[in-house]
């Protein structure tokens, strides 16, 4: 699969950072605003897929080696292990149940501030392990969904001129 026209490439390159920043914002503010790991990861993976479709798989696979596909899948596995590892840490600390939120309302730790009740201005430094789980799931979804598109491009890299 070859690339698209120069107009599409330019517009995609200009708009790609904004999509990525929006997706990372959705991931990072998952415990405050609508969205979360899956939604933000889908947005970031959409931006990456847009760039890949604009530039074509021939160009992309000229830049990437099979090693990079392995790195992508390693990142996905890191996200999965981080998610389930945080879940298992709940068995060790606190009240010792699976998916226990062991970091909430502990002032000494990251994301441990006590939230003000009611409709107040949101504080990003709250919610215990929920932001960490959002980051893990976001990494997993970015790598997983982009890996699917990247493997499609890898399978069609030999079709020149189509």
């Amino acid at each position: 699969m070859s690339g698209m026209s120069k107009i599409v490439k330019t517009i995609s390159s200009i708009i790609f950072p904004f999509i990525t920043i929006y997706g990372l914002y959705v991931i990072a503010h998952g415990h405050l605003t609508p969205g979360g790991g899956f939604q933000g990861g889908a947005v970031v993976a959409s931006g990456l897929a847009m760039l890949l479709v604009a530039y074509g798989s021939v160009w992309t696979m000229g830049k990437l080696k099979e090693k990079h596909l392995s790195i992508n899948q390693t990142l996905e596995s890191v996200g999965a292990i981080g998610f389930i590892g945080l879940a298992f840490f709940g068995l060790i600390f606190g009240t010792k149940i699976f998916f226990n939120n062991f970091l909430v309302n502990k002032q000494d730790y990251l994301f441990g501030a006590t939230v003000k009740l009611g409709e107040t201005a949101a504080n990003i430094n709250t919610a215990g392990i929920l932001p960490l789980m959002n980051f893990a799931v976001g990494l997993k979804v970015i790598a997983g969904l982009f890996g699917i598109v990247l493997l499609m491009a890898y399978a069609t890299r030999l079709k020149e001129g189509k």
Partner: peptide, 25 residues
Amino acid sequence: EETGANNGVTAVVFDYRGFDTLGEA
């Protein structure tokens, strides 16, 4: 109070019903 999150949907998805998210992953 329990999860410290202002977004109730994320609190349900990752805390109260964490097993669902595990299955989705």
